[in-house]
Design a protein around this nucleic acid. Structure first.
Lengths: 157, 157
DNA sequence: GTTCCTGCAAAGAGTTTGCATTGTG
DNA sequence: CACAATGCAAACTCTTTGCAGGAAC
């Protein structure tokens, strides 16, 4: 079976071809970095990450490419915590929601299959076509000695 | 029965007293504006709103006061749509979640009582104490002739 | 060769901060 | 009358934009 990264590249190429857009090295590299190395990240850290790998991709291109990847569904954009924009790769991951620790801002993921009916109910009530949903739970560790409590603040607080 | 605005003022005063903070005219006015006139708003529009009422409250004070009101639970902070920070008064409103129209960014509210069990399940699984949750559903109008489709973009896209 | 894409640097939005001044307790 | 809170303006962070050069098709 093909890796998610390889599948993602194929999807990107199909999308570019369909839209008459160009396949540039920068777009390929950005997608590769996202699929091979990052889970939750922001534009700035992605930019830095690329620099550190020796790839000179400008900030503007990072932002442009993220828009592109969101548009073709390979990346999802989130806005939780203190307003920072976070991204996450989409392919090869189960639908999930997020639990954010208020002590250390660690982001954990969980699946809540019961959300399906909730979304459907709202869709029916308001006569809309749901595209995406985000459930974020903010919580404190029940254990005062939580190992996360003292750790560094996670990205995207 | 006392109005939500009056109750809110009482809660604020109690909080200030408890923390040894001062009761200033600015804090009172900001809270009043929020409870009497605004539903979903951002810091910038609150500042403008106060200016237009002839109240000279600086941007810095608006931000400080919003932090204070969030800390004492009278105001809730949200981060949906394209990353803008939105606020909403808490008191006198039922727990609800948000539906955002991707065509016009109109924010609608709904109640989903089924969320309770979902949150409880996650809390048990991860051994955490949930403080708040936010469910946001992004959707398109099912009706292509949706009256919102052509309207101005709502705040907080 | 045309048009899209990139990089750069500057602009823009939203938010925070430093410091002198004001006003509450 | 001490010290917290305010106002102002400047700083800061994240993101977007304009434009000239370069690359894909």
């Amino acid at each position: 079976m093909e890796s998610a990264a390889a599948q993602a590249q194929a999807i990107l190429e199909a999308y570019l071809a369909e839209k008459g857009l160009r396949r540039t090295e920068e777009r390929t590299e950005v997608l590769k970095a996202i699929y091979e190395e990052l889970t939750h990240f922001d534009a700035e850290s992605l930019h830095k990450h690329l620099q550190e790998k020796g790839l000179r991709v400008s900030r503007a291109t990072v932002y442009n490419t993220l828009d592109l990847l969101v548009a073709c569904g390979l990346v999802t954009r989130y806005h939780f915590g203190e307003g920072r924009t976070l991204y996450e790769r989409t392919l090869g991951r189960r639908q999930h929601d997020h639990l954010i620790c208020l002590d250390c801002n660690l982001i954990r993921e969980f699946c809540a299959p019961q959300m399906g009916p909730v979304i459907d109910g709202v869709a029916r009530l308001f006569q809309v076509k749901p595209v995406q949903h985000q459930l974020v739970i903010y919580a404190h560790c029940a254990d005062a000695a939580c190992p996360h409590r003292s750790s560094e603040r996670a990205i995207g607080r």
